[in-house]
Nucleic acid binder design. Structure first.
Lengths: 344, 344
DNA sequence: AGACTTCATGAAAAGGTTTTCAAAAAAATA
DNA sequence: TATTTTTTTGAAAACCTTTTCATGAAGTCT
């Protein structure tokens, strides 16, 4: 933090206003002074102080991203989509994690406040009552993968319900009746939607007593592994397991393998998210591809449109991105001896 | 950007100095005024402007992270380690990607400049000549997974050479002689080190003509897949393939599977990085675990120590984090019918 | 009680930039 | 040439804090 605009002005023998004008080319300045300034700035390695600048501008050129975790394939792809879109539009990125905790969430909000021009928030665990108590910020916010109804925010989600419904139907059509379901974190809205899709499909097939088939999980391999072991102890053993996400499903595969149970011959397994690594499990995992990368880029574009005032009096967005059923060998016995799912 | 410290001062009927003192509790102020200020600030929902603050302080409370990509298991875990350590120390995080491009790298450097107190840079493709031309910043920098010699920066790397050497020896000890090697990006220093380890181990075994066994890859599944197909056309076919990272190795597995070649019976396969998803490939992938999460947290801690001036006149750090050989079924035939690698 | 120290408080400067406003210089018009 | 218009330039205000300095009040000591 050394060389300032004054130094450049002095070196070029002009006023600081002129330097500012040249560097932002905001006005016409005579060619000779222009060159003088440019050279002085270069020689001194002058780099404007963004703090001073944004104090006037009231804009930082940054976007804030608040999400539960930063690692894991799901969040990582999401960030990739965000990063790409942000970079293309010359915004820098500030990133914070909540770990699904209220207090970390609030702390992150506070930290982002006024350091960025807008926020993208993914907080699936955010309930209606929490939402009401969100500290109000001055920046526009786009919520993703979050159920926020009562506030005038843009919201972009996946069609979790539809995906889970289609996936459950797929299992039913394969002839499965006793389909166990490993749920996601109890307070995560996306997980709840998936469970809702499962229940609906089951109910439509006339299978009512579904609660006994549901097991609590936590979107992690560990929880999937543990739940699978409990499922294996049920007396009429379920012939299929639908996990709320791919990580849980991988834990299930691992537990079944340890127990010497063949997939999908003895038990079919399905996940949710369509992670790339699902292609490489044994057997490759049936899942529902959610366009998580696209979610990131769409959110950025929407946010930037808001920032540019293009959407000044547009109604808040409610968008559910479509999902896609990925049928692989963990459910579809016929495919077991076929080739690996397409490798692109 | 509405309510300022003036408004609070006015509401509490004190001077702005007093408000500042209360909010930062930097001096003693009488209890009655203190309460008045606190209440006014709360009522008005006052949140200090970080730009104004850092203009005085010359500190932002942020760390910048510059890395090739933000998605993918490797970078994702790295970010996880960084995030955890940064959050614990109350630093926010600014993140940029270079995509291995010089110009994006420079743009990111410029964007970070003065917006953060220090930088963590991962730029494996940065050569000696590039390093010399790094735009000089005022903030301290810790380089990770980057070969920078001639500058007084802290540098933390993995023992890529040692890991590759050990992995190659493992294959040699299994009786393989014709071990093909799929290299990483030509300009990536970490990839070069891995190739060096491979060559050294081969040479030590008296295998000299190693160049014919080397194939160019790019750290991606696609490149591994393509290279494997070329390897399969060699006349005395190699009995083992050592890829420069796990993603390439997964591409290899995929190509071998398509060609109906059994792993490890016909061809043994090994990767590098020890990604979690390597547990789930068919068969599970032998690899070298690099402590990438730890790399992130170590870098943060080192950087924060520098910021606090604790290392004022300490010599720049040169640290190679130890790596660990992970032997799984893709190389070790005996394990093929054993159980899945430990699931924790 | 007087001199001196401690304490709480406010005024003002500083930090680095952008931008408004006015002045000066140059060009154009009569 | 005198006057008006246009163009270029610099001075200063503004942005929002923190911090130094000075002031006045309160407390302490002989």
């Amino acid at each position: 933090m050394r060389v300032t605009i004054r130094d450049v002005a002095h070196a070029a023998n002009v006023s600081i206003s002129t330097v500012s004008r040249v560097l932002n080319d905001t006005c016409v300045v005579s060619e000779d002074k222009r060159l003088l300034v440019l050279e002085a700035a270069k020689n001194l390695n002058y780099r404007p102080n963004p703090a001073a600048r944004s104090l006037l501008n009231k804009s930082t050129g940054g976007l804030g991203v608040l999400l539960p975790f930063v690692s894991g394939e799901f969040f990582s792809e999401f960030l990739g989509g965000i990063d790409e879109a942000a970079q293309k539009n010359d915004f820098f990125l500030m990133i914070s994690t909540s770990h699904r905790h209220q207090d970390e969430f609030r702390a992150a909000m506070r930290a982002m406040d006024k350091r960025v021009d807008g926020l993208i928030i993914m907080a699936p665990e955010l309930g209606a009552e929490d939402a009401a108590s969100i500290p109000s910020l001055d920046e526009p916010v786009v919520f993703v993968n979050t159920n926020i109804d009562q506030r005038p925010f843009d919201v972009i989600n996946f069609d979790n319900f539809g995906g889970a419904h289609a996936l459950t139907r797929h299992l039913l059509e394969l002839g499965h009746h006793r389909i166990a379901h490993i749920k996601g974190p109890a307070d995560a809205r996306d997980a709840q939607e998936r469970t809702r899709g499962y229940r609906m499909a089951m109910a439509e097939s006339g299978i009512e007593d579904v609660v006994a088939l549901e097991f609590q999980g936590g979107f992690t391999q560990e929880s999937g592994h543990a739940a699978a072991n409990r499922i294996l102890q049920m007396d009429p053993r379920p012939s299929a397991i639908m996990a709320a996400n791919d990580y849980s499903a991988m834990g299930v595969l691992s537990a079944l393998h340890e127990a010497g149970i063949s997939v999908p011959k003895d038990v079919a397994v399905a996940g949710f998210d369509g992670l790339a690594s699902g292609q490489f499990t044994v057997p490759p995992l049936t899942s529902v591809r959610v366009p998580v990368r696209e979610l990131g880029s769409t959110a950025v574009m929407r946010l930037i449109d808001r920032l540019h005032g293009k959407l000044a009096d547009t109604a808040p967005l409610r968008l559910d991105l479509p999902v896609e059923l990925l049928i692989r060998e963990s459910t579809s016995a016929k495919a077991v001896h076929g080739r690996t799912p397409a490798f692109e």
